[in-house]
Amino acid sequence: MRSWVTVGALALAATVVGPAVVHTTASAHAISAPTQVGGGKAGKVTPTPAPTPTPTSSTGAAPLVQGTLVETVAYGRHVRQRMDVWYQPDELKRPGVFLVHGGWWSSGDKKYMTEVSRSYAEQGYVVFNINYRLSGDASWPAPRTDTFGAIATARRHAARWSFDPNNYVVVGFSAGGHLATAVGTYKNGLPGLRGVVGISPVISPLTAYTEGIGTLDPNKRKLRDSAIKLAGGCEPTGKCARVWTSMEVPWHASRGDAPMLIVHSSDEFVSAEHSRQLKEHLQQVGVPVTVLTEQGIEHSAPLYRLPGVAEQVQQWVAEKLFSLGR
């Protein structure tokens, strides 16, 4: 199978499409053919990633790039263990982009990432837009385990989607940014992971917990409560210290971790302190980190939609996925 890069498809990465929120009506339970439109560190609670079951698929409903197929794939038994796969059924091996939605770890859905998925699919990437168990379904580390499960399933069945399993990035928004960076700092690096992007990522649940004490900001108070719920309903003391340690991304930095790009607004409720901590820990072990700060209060998807932000993220992603010297 030829590499996408070797046939000159890098030019596709110059395409930039501004994201917007669009709802998809795809059912995760229907089983049918794909649809074509237009043609080991201390403190870890889970020692290993999730298993990789053979995926089952259903139809996707979003209008796609010409020649692109979409499948809604089950990577586990729970109803939330689903991902939409946007791919071109050809002989190339294309780089992959995994998208992880936000929502306080307790809400949100992959359908809100439809236009972001489309923008990367139009650039020629294979896109894996994932759902995961929420904190009301299971506490930490369930959502991280699910993110591993989605990635492992995609890599195991790479040929099915013309995907290069050794060349992908993970992009997460808000709480999804926490999961993306947690995956990026797991053990000493995941095979094939070339970069991690966090848009308003909640990198440090402990910082969220502290900043939510005594504040008048309702979002900071809600984020504190959401972190407690993610931890199984307990605060970071006594018997719960271990799970909070596992959730704390900066403490798991190691030399083999993937490079990271982090974007915050200057005055949003997920403070840039989260990024400062992660940058400090990753730089100590020699992992490059780029932090972008935009003026204003926009958080997550609204931040990504600010003029120039998506373009900078897409350029960074392209640099990471085309730096292998092929």
Score class of each variant (00 low, 15 high):
Ser226Trp: 04
Gly195Arg: 06
Phe163Tyr: 12
Tyr87Arg: 04
Arg276His: 10
Gly177Gln: 10
Gln66Thr: 13
Pro49Arg: 09
Ser57Thr: 12
Thr153Asn: 03
Ile297Asn: 10
Gly67His: 10
Ser246Asn: 14
Tyr112Lys: 03
Ala227Phe: 02
His299Lys: 11
Arg224Phe: 07
Thr181Ile: 02
Phe269Gln: 07
Gln123Leu: 00
Ser107Cys: 01
Ala138Asp: 13
Gln66Tyr: 06
Phe173Thr: 11
Ala175Lys: 09
Gly136Pro: 03
Leu99Trp: 03
Arg118Ile: 08
Arg80Val: 00
Leu193Pro: 03
Phe148Met: 05
Asp225Ser: 12
Gly18Gln: 15
Val85Ser: 04
Tyr304Gly: 00
Pro53Cys: 07
Leu321Pro: 04
Gly176Ala: 06
Gln277Val: 01
Glu235Lys: 15
Ala241Glu: 15
Val243Cys: 03
Pro165Gln: 12
Arg224Met: 12
Val317Gly: 03
Lys320Tyr: 02
Leu193Lys: 02
Glu91Gln: 12
Thr46Ser: 14
Glu280Asp: 13
Tyr132Gln: 07
Leu134Pro: 04
Gln36Gly: 05
Ala175Glu: 10
Val5Lys: 07
Thr207Lys: 09
Arg194Tyr: 04
Phe322Leu: 08
Leu179Gln: 13
Gly124Glu: 03
Val183Phe: 10
Ala208Ser: 15
Gly102Trp: 11
Glu268Ile: 06
Gln314Met: 08
Val16Arg: 14
Val116Gly: 00
Gly108Asn: 06
Gly238Cys: 07
Lys93Val: 01
Val70Ala: 10
